[in-house]
Design a binder for these strands. Sequence first.
RNA 1: GGCCCGUUGGUGAAGCGGUUCAACACACCAGCCUUUCACGCUGGCAUGCAGGGGUUCGAAUCCCCUACGGGUCACCA
Length: 496
Amino acid sequence: MTVRVRFAPSPTGHLHIGGARTALFNYLFAKKLGGSYILRIEDTDTLRNKDDAEEKLIRAFRWLGLTWDEGPDVGGDYGPYRSMERLDTYQPFLDKLVSEEKAYPCFCTKEELEAEREAAQQNGQTPRYSGKCRHLTKEQVQAKIDANIPYVIRFAVTGDNEIQFQDHIRGDMSFQRADIEDFVICKSDGVPTYHFAVTIDDSLMEITHVIRGEEHLSNTPKHVLLFEAIGAPVPEFAHIPLILNENGKKLSKRDETILQFIEQYHDLGYLPDAVNNYLALLGWSPGGEYNEEEIFSLDKLIQLFSLDRINKAGAIFNQEKLSWVNSQYIKAIELDTLIVLCKPYLENDKEYQEYLRQNELDEEEANERTRELVALFQTGMSRISDIVPLIKLFTSENALYDEEANQVLIQEQVPAVLTSFATKINELAEYTPSEIKKALKAVQKETGYKGKQLFMPIRATTTGQVHGPDLNQTLYLLGKEKVLSRVNHVQKQVVS
RNA sequence: GGCCCGUUGGUGAAGCGGUUCAACACACCAGCCUUUCACGCUGGCAUGCAGGGGUUCGAAUCCCCUACGGGUCACCA
């Protein structure tokens, strides 16, 4: 039997990292086994649906490279792929359940239910629907319907045997029927609830494996009940652990301590494969001979993936590690590719554009300058957008002196080093990296200072920082004038 | 509160009854490389696997209890 899996988001917002990871696991599983991966839009919550959410979702997935074999945009043999376009499909199943008395109309108002719930809570009991409408006679039901009293359809949970199912990650699961209330399967506006739509859809679309977040674990017995009620086979389940924030809590969409939306990663210049790579490692690990590696291409992930290597415990999202993974990908790509990726950020950077203009560089020279700058920072970027703050070193008029730089500048050898350095630089016939290197050598000879004692004052003076890229290259790209004016600036400060 | 699930270092994790079992990676610290910086490289970093009981010749690995954490209890998905 061919494996068929799906990712079934509701179109209520941006693609979330949790959703992306669930989708990724589904994708990897399908590809690994040569099955189909389906995107289905679960849009039965008509109040919360957002118009552009589906479009955003699709754009984010395309960026990540997780393409589906069937979906609302590409079609397929099991469509349509949006719940709200399947209303006619659900209806017969609903009618049948009602006629078989496996489901029944409930006329209770929200207020009544709310009151019951509160009362139960006050008495320390588990709030649960009483089931009172289940026992209405046909005549009573008809009378209420004739009177236009709004109603929902509830599923009648009967019997007392346990509901059991297999979970690939958690093993044997069982729930007591008594713990499950008669849940709503069709809302008063005639739209099925998620529980109903999802089971009908999974059944009709012949989904073989339901891979979803752990928050659905306690919904699963309801779905099992529904599969059984409509006489459909129950798919296999795999409930993957949640992604937690630093405090070990489920991510809240309002939590701004970490970047939660794929769109943000796109905007900041994370590479899609790096995001996939990191997400795959959240709750899953390859084990075996690949235990010592961390960087895996999408193809490699497909090759290595398996459900039984998914962890049970929730995984705490670690932004730093993601950044590291991303930096590994940035280091690995060709310089030309990196330049192309950096271009949009640079073109939007007014300061850089102004810098190019001031230096009167023609297009070719400007491209060459961009190339030099990107090359200089390739090993220091953890995301593409970093290029903008990084090149401030060269584009801003004055250096901003940080605390560490100031500490260096008060050292006793600084005046002597700077004086000599200014002289040697001034004497340079040609201002090139190799000549600059010679000049520094000469400063060393003249002053007797070398190593940190020599380089740090110059670095701190010209860049305002004690960390940065190769000094010769930095001085060269800074340009003679800026270098000298900054030296001059610091000399004045030190004297006064 | 009921029902579920989980608990190996700051983080991701390996380990699935016994030949270094506490890998590997991020972070951190130290050293090397570099006349500086960054990259890179090397090393350090859990005496104990939440705690307590068992089972066993032997347990992080099996069972039970407790604690703690999480998820879920909607006409949301």
